[in-house]
């Protein structure tokens, strides 16, 4: 059971969190401008790194905030947690 640092609540057990997969996948601003292949790349393809990985976690049983974690996917060692950027320029869905 991992010990995960929530940037707001501190170190908590893994069971309090839900996993959000790879971090840094940005929704395209203009989906219609993309080819099917480009859209599929956003939708499905992942680097799925073996090694240092930036990923998203949510403190679901706590403050319910999403945040980033850098974790090694082989040793499972966590380098640290970070807050997600806030208040970016408006993007459409």
């Amino acid at each position: 059971m991992f010990l995960i640092q929530c940037p707001w609540c501190g170190e908590r057990a893994e069971t309090e969190f839900s996993y959000g997969g790879e971090a840094g996948i940005v929704r395209p601003l203009e989906p219609d401008a993309l080819s099917d292949a480009e859209w599929a790349d956003y939708l499905f393809n992942r680097t799925n790194l073996r090694g240092a990985y930036k990923e998203l976690w949510n403190h679901a049983q706590g403050c319910r905030r999403w945040f980033g974690v850098e974790r090694d996917t082989v040793t499972y060692k966590i380098e640290g947690s970070y807050e997600l950027p806030s208040g970016r320029a408006g993007k459409g869905a």
Binding site: R46, L49, R50
Partner: peptide
């Protein structure tokens, strides 16, 4: 278990999570 790793060697990404 290592499909994405080998895919990366071939310059590809796969719709896979391990």
């Amino acid at each position: 278990g290592n499909a994405s790793v080998l895919a990366a060697m071939a310059g590809m990404r796969l719709p896979i999570q391990s």
